[in-house]
């Protein structure tokens, strides 16, 4: 299994349409160029998968969602009109698809969120065995707390903390006002803190 390193195509704070490479890739995808689609997928598969994993809690569903999203994208990329960042448009599709999967799971009475401790993590700090154990414990605590969090809270926290989306971008992805983003983030952080401390 290969971990793909992602270099962001644009710097944060840059103009939303300032990335000519990404625009060109999207245009070529719209024209039916599979190589451009491949390039886009390799740019975004890491975050699409990790956002889906964060929201759904298991690798199979996350992988299925990521594949569904990219297949849907190939057929429907004509809907992207270059009025926003491609990434925010894509993240909105991913989060909506995750919500659909969760609804479907609820309807079929499957386990809503399963914590898989055997899932491999990207090593962040493995300087010593003690720190590795500590890190694993921290992640387990966090993952369990995230699993108990309200869906809206989990989604906004993952997008903000993992992808570092700005309030404007979050407002675009979640379809709510910046003020609502601000208050919801505070509520989400407070709820997560309470779950971790208890």
């Amino acid at each position: 299994m290969e971990h793909v390193s992602i270099a962001p195509l644009y710097s944060r704070g840059a103009d939303r349409l300032s990335n000519p490479i990404e625009r060109e890739l999207v245009r070529r995808c719209q024209d039916g160029d599979k190589q451009a689609m491949d390039a886009l997928m390799r740019q975004y598969q890491h975050w699409v998968y990790n956002i889906a994993f964060g929201m759904l809690g298991n690798p199979e569903d996350a992988s299925d969602v990521a594949q569904d999203v990219f297949l849907w994208l190939w057929e429907n990329i004509g809907q992207f009109q270059f009025r926003s960042r491609f990434s925010t448009w894509l993240y909105r599709i991913v989060t909506n698809r995750c919500l659909n999967v969760k609804d479907r799971n609820k309807r079929h009475h499957t386990e809503p969120m399963e914590i898989l401790d055997s899932q491999p993590w990207v090593p962040v700090d493995t300087a010593s065995p003690e720190s590795a154990v500590l890190l694993a414990e921290q992640r387990e605590i966090l993952q369990r707390a995230l699993a108990k969090l309200k869906e809206d809270y989990r989604r906004i926290l993952i997008l903000r903390e993992m992808r570092n989306l700005s309030y404007d971008e979050l407002s675009e992805v979640l379809g709510c006002s910046v003020g609502r983003v601000k208050s919801r983030l505070y509520e989400a952080r407070k709820a997560l803190r309470k779950l971790i401390l208890t």
């Binding site: 299994m1 964060g54 996350a62 992988s63 491999p120 962040v124 971790i196």
Partner: peptide, 23 residues
């Protein structure tokens, strides 16, 4: 908690390869 969530990154399966084969 922010640092913990930011570190929650998983190894990614070869999604692009699988999708490319189905496009």
């Amino acid at each position: 908690n922010r640092q913990w969530i930011a570190a929650l990154e998983h190894e990614v399966p070869p999604i692009a390869d699988r999708v490319l084969a189905q496009l």
